[in-house]
């Protein structure tokens, strides 16, 4: 039984995961006992009291108040235990310690943006220190998303008109998957991110050095890195296949047909505009769903992306 429950759950990598799992196990085991018990009783009755002839006479047992009370009160006690247990852990899950390290999370269709207190931004990868409470303050730019890390047993909807938050304290270094669990359209199932849990020092190193600058790289390589980091490839392929958005392959220099019948040249200005104001000129046959990267990417980074797209012929 224990092994089954362990098998059913993802690895527990946060401080509150254990408590959640304990309740999960408790409900599973007690349900199991009930289900097996009732099913066996049922099957036993069906066999023991099977019809022997059509003239069988059955006793008149119409009710029994003591039984009724018993099988009302015992489940009642059990569910009240489950309720209180669930509620107390839940309260811990929604009450972050005051010294928690804060990260701003922005959900957009269909990527996660993480803003750190030093101004760094990372897309689709969240870096957090180990053994330190981390509080995420989340909001959405468009529709409702939901931030879910199974390994930490946390989940919270990300709303467009309000801030919501989750917090966790990771207990192990390594990587965990972030899912979007509120249906948000075409690429909902690709709206994944990774949590990288570092040791405290590694985390500070990462925060200072990277943030994904790559400024020392040649522009094409930097562009490729940025395209990956910013989850462009969720919607734009580099091999010609059609995803949510038009492919990058062969795009450079081509004429882009627009919804209104006009065409526009795929050049530096078009790329720049499409990154900062994606819905100004939408390629014919595609939905105006791309989020804006204004504030996420600066001009040097956009230059690098342009250089990279140029290579995709």
């Amino acid at each position: 039984m224990n092994r089954l429950i362990e098998y059913m759950l993802p690895p527990a990598k946060s401080t509150l995961a254990g408590e959640t799992d304990a309740l999960f196990a408790f409900i599973n085991i007690s349900s199991f006992i009930f289900i097996i018990g009732i099913t066996l009783t049922m099957l036993y009755f069906a066999w023991r009291y099977r019809r022997k002839s059509d003239d069988d006479v059955t006793p008149v047992i119409s009710h029994n108040n003591i039984l009724e009370i018993t099988w009302s009160v015992i489940p009642l006690i059990l569910v009240i235990i489950v309720f209180s247990w669930g509620y107390s852990t839940y309260m811990k899950k929604i009450s972050p310690p005051s010294d928690a390290y804060e990260v701003r999370v922005v959900g957009k269709s269909w990527l996660w943006e993480f803003h750190y207190d030093n101004g760094n931004v990372s897309v689709n990868e969240l870096h957090v220190p180990e053994n330190r409470p981390v509080k995420l303050i989340m909001s959405s730019d468009d529709v409702i998303h939901s931030f879910y890390v199974p390994d930490f047993r946390v989940k919270m909807d990300v709303l467009p008109n309000r801030y919501t938050s989750v917090w966790f304290e990771a207990t192990e270094q390594g990587e965990s998957t972030v899912y979007c669990t509120e249906y948000c359209g075409t690429a909902h199932s690709n709206m994944l991110a990774t949590v990288h849990v570092h040791s405290q020092e590694d985390f500070e190193d990462w925060l200072e050095t990277s943030g994904g600058s790559g400024e020392d790289l040649p522009p094409v390589e930097r562009g490729e890195m940025l395209v990956q980091q910013n989850a462009c490839m969720t919607c734009h392929s580099t091999d010609g296949s059609r995803l949510t958005g038009p492919t990058f392959q062969g795009a450079w220099g081509s004429d882009v047909p627009l919804e209104n019948g006009e065409t526009v040249q795929f050049d530096e200005n078009y790329v720049r505009e499409s990154i900062l104001e994606p819905n100004a000129k939408v390629h014919q046959g595609f939905q105006p769903v791309m989020p804006s990267y204004a504030g996420t990417l600066d001009d040097r980074q956009i230059d690098a992306i342009i250089e990279y797209i140029k290579t995709l012929q």
């Binding site: 804060e102 701003r104 803003h115 207190d117 303050i137 309000r162 801030y163 919501t164 938050s165």
Partner: peptide
């Protein structure tokens, strides 16, 4: 009774 957090930055 909603109690929304506000971001520090």
């Amino acid at each position: 009774f909603r109690n929304d957090p506000t971001p520090l930055f």
